[in-house]
Design a protein around this nucleic acid. Sequence first.
DNA 1: CTGAAAGCGCTTACAG
DNA 2: CTGAAAGCGCTTACAG
Lengths: 347, 347
Amino acid sequence: MTIKDIARLSGYSVATVSRALNSHPDISEAARAKILEVVAQQDFQPNNNAKHLKQQADTGVAIVVKGIMNLLFAELVERVQDLLQSAGQEASVHYLDEDANEVVYACHLCRERKPRGILFLGGDLELFRAGFAPITVPCVLLTNSARELGFANLSSFTTDDAAAAAQVIGLLADKGHRSIGVLGGNFSCSQISFRRLTGCKEAFARLGIPFDEALQYEPCRYSMRDAYAATRRLLERSPGLTALFAVGDVIAMGAVRALRDLGRRVPDDLSVVGYDGVEMSRYTVPRLTTVRQDVTALAERGVDDLLRRIGWNRPPVHEVIPFRMIDGESVAGPAAEKGRGPEPSRP
Amino acid sequence: MTIKDIARLSGYSVATVSRALNSHPDISEAARAKILEVVAQQDFQPNNNAKHLKQQADTGVAIVVKGIMNLLFAELVERVQDLLQSAGQEASVHYLDEDANEVVYACHLCRERKPRGILFLGGDLELFRAGFAPITVPCVLLTNSARELGFANLSSFTTDDAAAAAQVIGLLADKGHRSIGVLGGNFSCSQISFRRLTGCKEAFARLGIPFDEALQYEPCRYSMRDAYAATRRLLERSPGLTALFAVGDVIAMGAVRALRDLGRRVPDDLSVVGYDGVEMSRYTVPRLTTVRQDVTALAERGVDDLLRRIGWNRPPVHEVIPFRMIDGESVAGPAAEKGRGPEPSRP
DNA sequence: CTGAAAGCGCTTACAG
DNA sequence: CTGAAAGCGCTTACAG
């Protein structure tokens, strides 16, 4: 069953069938009705290979998600899809592995699917720097800033990770913590992890709180299993820590479990702060105190800017979206009064 | 940059370039080497639209995942991909929404991508019954049994959900529970939820434990948020329950949180059992007692059978894969000794 | 082993 | 508003 069959059955030419199928304006109501009737009756689906092979430009936008199991992106993609749909825009979602090359993938997409615009959920700046140039359609990067790259067709919207991390440290300091560990960060979004760690260091310096990166920082991937092992390593090195900042909620969950298994209760013995404020963080025991990235605003600003730039050829923008702290049950004062000393011991 | 450019640059015809690109046997080593050199140097990527438009059959198998955020499927897809890769089989993963029509999607795939075989992770039997007939390549359905459908090219491998559910009830009964609630089950995998509930009912009947479905069963989707609300509804109706069987780990997590917020501690006041045994269930507080679906065996048997049937035209098989219980920290005896009465009150 | 040529199923100027 | 025809970039008999 091809477009030729529909042409034969409807009594029109393949050209007219194609026009009806693609809601082309230059077609009579009679032709459209007749053709769509036959199409419906035959349950005809056009072959997308042929369609995209010939078609100059697709009508929809592509959403490229970097990290199939990323809970924050899952929430973002849902919002973004809703917004796009409300705007009458078709959207196709493409899920990539966490350590795939999203820019190379997007190049493919442009050659083979020719979307009107691309929305990246997560992205590695180095990959953009190296490979984004061939992409000419309007693009938006969410959760990372692309300002420094200076591409004329790439906007970005991001949370101020450094400021948020600094605020976390400030919050823990306010509670009286002076021995704070930092947990997590990995390759596939190195800049983001780096910004969060940098924010921590600045806060430590400003507050006069000691921080020995070699002793008090432990990287790990965004997985509970990895976080669990990393927490044990960190606590073995620095048993005197009274608080942990996990740079992701998933990491925080692994940390909480590891601490319990080490006989440390959260928050009684150790406080834990997460990052992202994903739905799951509202259902853990204890509920996480965490930085909430404003998923709604990120999605709205991203979609709005993308559609605006698809319609009119405007310069890209780079915005910082405010975050907020969510109070949970995973932070308390240090357990010094319970007889624990004021570590970590520094040489 | 198309295959024609490569032909020109390498001094061969497009036909020979195509052969080199597709590792066709009838090509000289000299031609292959020269062409692949030019291809590498130009970083040429063939256009898949054209490729699939013309190509009779793809070389790879397709994995169709029903439920983008399903943690069990996430583990399965990882295993399946590894196995396929070890077998030298190319694989493409297709993520569908939980309530998408996987069979319609697979039909598309067959027309446009022509895979050698399809592996379904999750699937609704009714959709298969209604739409699977046009699909002619060997297929495998994982986590649901397709035996009753009798398709000549569809195998299936599944956990014995009814038996597992019955064993859960048996375990709770052994601990002394007589007032057990059942939580969860939804549309997109109705048969599976139904089998688990059926298993429970059989166990209740066999053990002589009262079970009033209207009072003690509450359906919900596989999400923490839904499970949270459902748990509150269930406990409001039947405050005397001493144990809950959540038919998914994600549901169990929402339930645990809801119970805490109701002032009931797990397992001290109420026991909770999950289902699936996903990685997350090992990191919750408390760790879940749960039914572990044998992800490794499901993946191995599924891939093995699919490849076997792709190679030789053999009849499909329908196998039940053993499960096992994982002991966690979420089950204890009923809290009767703490002064709670032996409910639920039955009229 | 290699090439010339047909054709996959569409879209899109172009002409009417 | 409609149709005839060219062509998107590949693969694949077919002939040599």
